[in-house]
Nucleic acid binder design. Structure first.
Length: 939
DNA sequence: TGAATCACG
DNA sequence: ACGTACGTGATTCAG
């Protein structure tokens, strides 16, 4: 058997693991970030399992300076300090490596690539196949030696990749691997601060080498190179020579390859168990160490769940002697069970489907998933359905392109779907429900959406099924890209993929989702978020499905006319700006605009720059300059009109559904950390209203026909009512109870006058403070926002704090709660974790503190309207109304109302909105309702 | 792909 | 001394 040596570039892999999960970091209950430890361990374990190396070593860099640093002081000079979390992970990772009984190699004065290069060549000389495990392309130069390869572990959905000399040459577009150092010398490396030749990148370097073969030859012939490139090369000669030297990996480092040291040995399980327990690697620990790992786990104390997440009696922890024995022996883990032990059946005849239905009818919980032709559920055709009710077992029913046949299959399944006692489990069920609704299929039972379970357990970060599977099951499922290719114009269609492959993919999805449900289910209780999950999020799914199915009618002719008008006016503004500037330029480019305003016209000597070094030209900046510079109002005018045109007026008519001719937005139910919905494709939650020209666009949203009219109902000052209610501040509660205008009442208190004496300006300022409170604003921010002095702002805030001391108390106690518990929560128990709340960094902590104040307010409002939607939806069904709920805009609901139903519908909406979530301290909830021939009129 | 800008609550 | 309001999504430019 050939001997296979794997050499791991530790730091490169650690960095990659850390940043791969940066958007949804793994945090332990004690607040440690374990991205790097998790990712590295996963990679290492998968590698051992899959590639079956006979020999293995991990190479680290040391802190000692290398020859490269002494020769060239800028080397790696602009490399940023690694994040704290990442550095803290290194000792853990070294413990893990020790646990696997793998040697760590490091040598002062040399970098990991030098050590790896030297060992690789020695081992290859000794007859090994050597794989250097790294994402770094620079290693390509070492492939001069046959039997040495680069192994790039799987990353972010792409498969692992083994690079030989030929593949490396293809990647760089060069003829021989020897040229890797030449290309690096020419182009440099921004990460390591290797300069190369200024203005020469990868493509140019490859071109030069095609002609001149080596870097030295390029430099010798510099005088023959024409044009700007020749100039660059002549200027960069010296730099190129240094760069090549820096990029050359040293292969005669004083290390010796001794094969007995690098041989894979038995693991030190005790060490591994200790580290994994400490890092809270539950599923990963189990995957690597097998069932025995559970026996060592103390938390959660002996709780295990059965197939459907019900708590069952757990086995007693293993006796001490057994523990010692297991630790002493060491043992290899089972293979990835998902790959080997599953049974996925293809149900491609009516008989098989019927047989399946008979079994499925016995179940109370079934996991299912649809395969379709389109990511837009409203345009999708069904390609197949998969089901699972037992882990590692799943069924796939293909649906032919012939829609009649597909309907016949669905007719068979309808008996199953209409069972009221079955709970349907799925990941993002709204999608599947919507696809089925277009086939007239409706699910009668309750829903259990794993995406939403994860949302309430961990509202931040992403939750694609692939990610959840990796995180909670330690298993990487088949990626959809492997079937239909990457997103883009060449993306294929699920319909064209071989049925066997779709079966494996689809069945696995249902299987994994079922397992995910089991993994997530105990966390709902652990984190105490069951209420919001069962009473708010899951029941909302069917409501949103129906809203997305309906869509809203858009008056395209009106928009076309309006577009022309906006274009005409925008041109005029643009002309005015060009005239004032004395030169035409791209007014849509903030960069060019900044240069014109602040360098050419010099309208503000104190112009501020953004963090990227450009001039800031945002609306707030420009408004301050508007008084003295007439050009500014033309710029703002242009901005307003082009924004309206490109984002709404031109975009909306492109998004009409092919079947309905209406616009169907999609609501994201698991995106906003506070619990709000968000709307996309198109976003119908940001249709203009604040300016006259913008507001016009609302006229384009109209009822579906002459028998209908639009109804809009919105909560009045809901967030401030929630502040009053949960803070219990007597003055603010009182104002609401008396039905006062809250901003006027606030102004009266703050300025010490009667309600009737409050001026417009005073009310405006009080409104500013009220909003500031909701966001945790400072005096500076208030001053900036209201355009008043800082001292004035401070006085107002001080008065506010005195008059509404309950609110100040609430803010302080909320922050304290967050500091002690690490989270804040809404009235429905929706939580947001604030891991930075105790940070020593002022800015970071400040951000967390403002979140602590704002999230319960914004989140409670979100809970309330979601519950109102569920109630209204149910009441409309009960009354058999044919009017439809169409849109939700955070505190507003829009309906297509059958005119004859208005008398029933209006009170039904208002009463359910008000009663959806009663507030403490008897603070009343008010809602208002309007009717009109378009959205503007109704609002 | 990220930054800047701006639409909404 | 520092930076300064919460939550979203779409469009445009530019590297």
């Amino acid at each position: 058997m050939t001997k296979k040596l794997f050499l791991l570039d530790a730091m490169a892999l650690i960095y990659r693991a850390y940043y791969a999960l940066i958007r949804s970091p793994r945090i332990t209950t004690t607040g440690r970030n374990t991205n790097a430890q998790f990712g590295f361990t996963n990679t290492l374990f998968d590698l051992i399992n899959k590639e079956k190396p006979t020999h293995l070593a991990v190479c680290f860099d040391t802190h000692a300076p290398t020859e490269r640093h002494t020769d060239f002081s800028d080397y790696k000079a602009n490399r940023q300090e690694a994040p704290e979390d990442l550095l803290a992970s290194i000792p853990d990772i070294q413990r893990i490596i020790r646990g696997f009984n793998i040697p760590c190699v490091e040598l002062d004065g040399y970098e990991a690539d030098d050590v790896i290069g030297t060992l690789a060549w020695q081992a290859a000389d000794a007859g090994y196949e050597v794989y250097m495990v790294t994402p770094d392309k620079d290693y390509g130069q070492l492939l001069i030696h046959p039997h040495v390869y680069i192994y790039r572990p799987p990353y972010m959905g792409s498969k692992e990749e083994i690079l030989d000399a030929k593949k490396v040459c293809e990647k760089w577009d060069i003829a021989r691997v020897e040229q890797v150092v030449d290309i690096l010398g020419l182009m440099g490396d921004a990460v390591d601060n290797i300069p190369g030749i200024a203005g020469v990148g990868e493509k140019t370097a490859a071109k030069l080498l095609k002609e001149y073969d080596t870097l030295e030859n390029v430099l010798e012939n510099a005088d023959n190179i024409k044009g700007a490139l020749g100039e660059k090369v002549r200027k960069g000669k010296e730099s190129a020579i240094i760069s090549k030297k820096l990029a050359t990996i040293i292969t005669n480092v004083p290390v010796q390859f001794h094969e007995e040291n690098f041989m894979l040995k038995e693991w030190n399980s005790k060490e591994l168990i200790d580290v994994f327990t400490e890092l809270e690697f539950k599923t990963l620990g189990k995957r690597i160490l097998g069932e025995t790992f559970n026996a060592f786990q103390s938390a959660p104390a002996g709780v295990q769940t059965d197939l459907f997440g019900n708590v069952v009696e757990s086995a007693a922890p293993a006796p001490k002697a057994e523990v010692e024995e297991a630790a002493a022996t060491g043992f290899q883990a089972d293979k990835n069970i998902n790959n080997t032990l599953h049974s996925y059946s293809l149900l491609d005849t009516p008989e098989k489907i019927k047989e399946f239905i008979t079994v499925a009818l016995q179940q109370t919980e079934i996991c299912f998933d649809t395969e379709t032709t389109n990511i837009d559920a409203n345009e999708a055709q069904l390609v197949g359905l998969s089901f699972s009710f037992s882990p590692h077992e799943a069924y796939y029913i293909p649906c032919p392109a012939n829609q009649q046949q597909t309907k016949a299959i669905l007719a068979l399944l309808n008996e199953l779907f209409s069972q009221p006692q079955i709970t349907w489990i799925g990941q993002n069920l709204k999608y599947d429900l919507l696809v089925l609704k277009w086939y007239n299929v409706e699910l009668k039972g309750a829903l259990y959406d794993t995406m939403l379970a994860h949302y309430v357990v961990e509202p931040e970060g992403r939750r694609s099924m692939d990610l959840l599977s990796a995180q909670y099951l330690g298993y990487e499922p088949v990626h959809i890209e492997e079937l239909i290719g990457k997103k883009g114009k060449n993306q294929g269609n699920m319909r064209d993929v071989e049925i066997e492959r779709v079966k494996d993919y689809a069945a696995e999805d249902a299987d994994i989702t079922l397992q995910l449900k089991q993994a997530l289910h105990p966390l709902l209780k652990e984190k105490d978020v069951e209420k919001v999950f069962y009473e708010v999020e899951n029941p909302l799914v069917k409501v949103l499905t129906d809203m997305e199915f309906e869509g809203i009618t858009v008056d395209v002719d009106f928009l076309r006319e309006y577009s022309k008008e906006l274009e005409r006016e925008a041109k005029q503004f643009e002309q005015n700006v060009f005239t004032a500037a004395g030169v035409p330029f791209n007014l849509s480019s903030p960069k060019q605009l900044g240069e014109i305003l602040f360098e050419r016209l010099k309208i503000d000597p104190k112009a501020k720059k953004t963090k990227t070094g450009q001039y800031a030209t945002g609306e707030d900046v420009l408004l301050k300059l508007a008084a003295n510079n007439p050009i500014v109002s033309d710029i703002l005018g242009y901005r307003e009109l082009t924004k309206l045109r490109s984002t709404y007026v031109e975009a909306l008519p492109q998004l009409l559904n092919s079947k309905t001719g209406r616009v169907h937005t999609s609501y994201a139910q698991a995106v906003a950390v506070t619990g709000r919905l968000s709307s996309n494709n198109p976003n119908l939650q940001n249709i203009p209203i604040r300016t006259d020209r913008g507001r016009e666009i609302r006229k384009a949203f109209i009822p579906r026909d002459e028998k209908h009219t639009l109804v809009s109902a919105d909560y009045s000052q809901i967030e401030l009512r929630i502040v009053a209610a949960i803070s219990g501040d007597p003055n603010m509660c009182e104002a609401f109870k008396l039905g006062k205008d809250i901003h006027t009442a606030t102004a009266a208190k703050v300025f010490g006058i009667k309600d009737e004496e409050v001026t417009k300006e005073q009310r405006y300022r009080a409104k500013g403070v009220n909003f500031g409170i909701i966001y945790g604003q400072s005096a500076f921010g208030l001053a900036d926002n209201l355009g008043i002095s800082r001292s004035e702002a401070k006085e107002i805030i001080d008065n506010y704090k005195k008059e509404f001391s309950g609110i100040t108390r609430y803010m302080d106690s909320t922050i304290n709660f967050a500091k002690e518990n690490g989270y804040v929560q809404t009235l429905m128990g929706r939580k947001r974790w604030l891991r930075d709340i105790n940070s020593s960094n002022f800015t970071v902590r400040g951000f967390a503190e403002r979140n602590a104040i704002n999230s319960p307010i914004q989140g409670t409002a979100a809970d309330m309207i979601k519950m109102a939607m569920i109630r209204i939806h149910a009441a409309m069904q009960k009354e058999k109304l044919r009017s439809k709920m169409l849109l939700q805009v955070h505190d507003e609901l829009v309906f297509d109302a059958l005119i004859e139903e208005l008398d029933v519908l209006k009170p039904l909406i208002l009463e359910n909105m008000k009663a959806a979530l009663p507030l403490p301290n008897e603070v009343p909830v008010e809602a208002e309702l309007g009717v009109g021939q378009n959205w503007l009129e109704a609002h």
